[in-house]
């Protein structure tokens, strides 16, 4: 760890406090919501009143003291399912997004710095993948390989990697044209080092903001797939499938099935808010100082 990194880590809380000062109220609220979601996801087994797939009462119980948000179509506690649903969806989205970024950014920057046939080959593969509409592509692959969590993560990763690749390649092209890249190459640095140490720090700001947005898209995609029954499979709790399973309640004027939908919406909007704020801050001229 270099002195600079250590210093950056040490000053992180201070910088965070400083950063919070110029947030709008919307952004602060969003940040709070994200923290609550994170808390729920991390500590689900301790917060949730019942077990994840435990049948605790009759189906479609109304809200009560025992079942704060009632029960679902199989008699499982709705609040518990909601908390676990958030945990599972966030976890899978996070893993999928992280892998997409790891692969996408690496390939994107590699493509940007290599140019030539490497760039051409990678870009055409990505173009081909992107030519297929993403939902159809996901449905296709999931019906071929079956719906398990690893397959789901893999499929989403493939889809999202193409998007991340495009962005990071574009960002990387700007950086690759810089003289300091030439300086590093003339020094005989390996491509991996150049990508990691010379390029990455300069595209990181935009990528972090993009990470937030990508995470939302992945979250929505997983929810959509689950809603269609191709995502996370029961009995594992999941926000999308919860909406579908309890949809019939709506006809009785009960808003319970809308809760998982609202959970999806709140998280997506909050992450967007914070990502926007972050993008604005990093776009400021002296953000790094």
């Amino acid at each position: 760890m270099t002195a600079g990194t250590r210093e950056a880590l040490m000053s992180f809380p201070r910088r965070l406090a400083g950063a919070a000062a110029d947030m709008s109220w919307g952004t602060r609220l969003s940040a709070l919501i994200i923290i609550l979601y994170g808390f729920a996801a991390l500590f689900a087994p301790w917060i949730a009143p019942y077990g994840e797939s435990e049948i605790v009462g009759p189906p479609f119980e109304p809200w009560s003291r025992t079942f704060l948000l009632g029960t679902d179509n199989l008699g499982r506690d709705m609040l518990t399912r909601l908390i676990y649903g958030i945990r599972n969806t966030i976890a899978i989205s996070l893993v999928a997004t992280l892998i997409s970024f790891l692969v996408g950014v690496t390939l994107g920057l590699l493509s940007a710095i290599s140019g030539g046939w490497v760039d051409a080959a990678l870009s055409r593969v990505v173009d081909t993948l992107m030519a297929v509409p993403q939902l159809i592509f996901a449905l296709l692959l999931l019906s071929v390989f079956g719906t398990s969590i690893p397959v789901l993560i893999a499929v989403i990763t493939v889809i999202e990697t193409t998007r991340v690749f495009r962005l990071s390649r574009a960002l990387g092209m700007d950086v690759a044209a810089m003289d300091y890249i030439d300086v590093a190459r003339m020094r005989g640095e390996r491509t991996g080092w150049i990508i990691r140490r010379e390029m990455l720090p300069n595209v990181a700001g935009t990528l972090v903001a993009e990470f937030g947005l990508r995470f939302c898209f992945v979250f929505l995609l997983i929810s959509a797939l689950s809603f269609m029954g191709l995502g996370i499979q029961p009995p594992t709790a999941d926000l999308g499938s919860m909406v579908r399973d309890n949809a019939s309640l709506i006809t009785y004027g009960d808003i319970t099935p809308l809760l998982p939908a609202a959970a999806i919406g709140f998280l997506t909007i909050s992450v967007n808010f914070v990502a926007d704020w972050y993008l604005k801050t990093t776009a400021k001229p002296d953000a790094s100082a």
Binding site: G4, M178, D179, Y180, V183, R197, P201, N202, S288
Partner: peptide
């Protein structure tokens, strides 16, 4: 352009 802005 010759100095990486991220490095000290």
């Amino acid at each position: 352009a010759a100095l990486n802005p991220s490095h000290t």
